[in-house]
């Protein structure tokens, strides 16, 4: 492992060569919007929100999967990047059936925060109003695919941390959907341990606990860092610390 020095948004920063640009930026208080990324799970680079400009490279690079190089010059918030980010959230808004006012995570929703963050005030694309299903067959939880943004956090936490692999993606393109088991009702899944990790990492109101009313549910993602650190480093971190 080597320590490297690079420049992010004009600021000289240092990081380890096995960290991502996103991790290094966050350690130095540089904010890059993300959606599919979550600390503790494998980065997949699919939401494209954390794309950054790297000097000398014609292509934009996802900060979550790009490793630093000595002397690298990174820009995270150029006008072009901000425009692209706003449009990505705009596309998401047009894709699903996101009705904040009647959602249990209203005001605690990462998608909603993201929209504020990137300055999305209107949507220029026609809403697609897809016909999506809601599955309440599980005794404790509900999946409402109308609110799913296909970040695959649920899939990854279930596979990587819980080891159950209940969730996966079916279909292609705009018809992609998160399914449980062999595309059976969640309640009939033999593999689900009802651990609830997927519900906690879900950034929107797609995975929720039963019995919560509008705007009542708050997602907690800290547990993930706790489990992953405990497993990897055999140390217990303080869950009450208010980092991030």
């Amino acid at each position: 492992m080597a320590i490297l020095t690079l420049t992010i948004d004009g600021e000289q920063v240092s990081g380890k060569d096995d960290e991502s640009i996103l991790e290094i930026a966050r350690q130095h208080g540089i904010h890059i919007p993300t959606l599919c990324y979550i600390d503790g799970l494998a980065a997949v680079g699919s939401c494209r929100l954390c794309l950054v400009e790297i000097e000398g490279s014609p292509k934009l690079a996802p900060a979550c999967t790009t490793k630093p190089q000595e002397g690298m010059v990174v820009r995270t918030a150029t006008e072009r990047l901000q425009r692209h980010r706003r449009m990505i959230v705009e596309l998401l808004a047009s894709e699903g059936n996101h009705q904040c006012a009647v959602c249990v995570v209203n005001n605690h929703c990462e998608l909603q925060n993201l929209a504020y963050d990137v300055g999305l005030t209107y949507v220029r694309f026609p809403y697609l109003f897809p016909k999506k299903t809601l599955d309440a067959s599980h005794k404790d939880f509900i999946i409402d695919r109308n609110r799913c943004v296909l970040c695959t956090r649920c899939l990854r936490v279930c596979y990587e941390v819980e080891g159950a692999h209940v969730w996966d993606v079916a279909g292609r393109g705009i018809n992609c959907e998160i399914i449980s088991g062999l595309n059976q009702p969640w309640g009939d899944s033999d593999t689900c341990t009802s651990c609830g990790k997927c519900v906690l990492v879900c950034p929107t109101g797609a995975l929720i606990e039963k019995g919560e009313a509008v705007a009542e549910m708050e997602k907690k993602t800290d547990f993930l860092r706790f489990i992953v650190t405990a497993r990897k480093k055999k140390e217990w971190i303080n869950m009450d610390s208010d980092e991030e």
Binding site: S46, R48, I88, L128, R172
Partner: peptide, 21 residues
């Protein structure tokens, strides 16, 4: 492209549909 998009990233999954529209 709408038909063949895998659906993993947002720009291609939704962007191609809106471009088509």
């Amino acid at each position: 492209c709408v038909d063949e998009s895998c659906g993993k990233c947002i720009p291609c999954r939704v962007g191609t549909v809106q471009l088509y529209n």
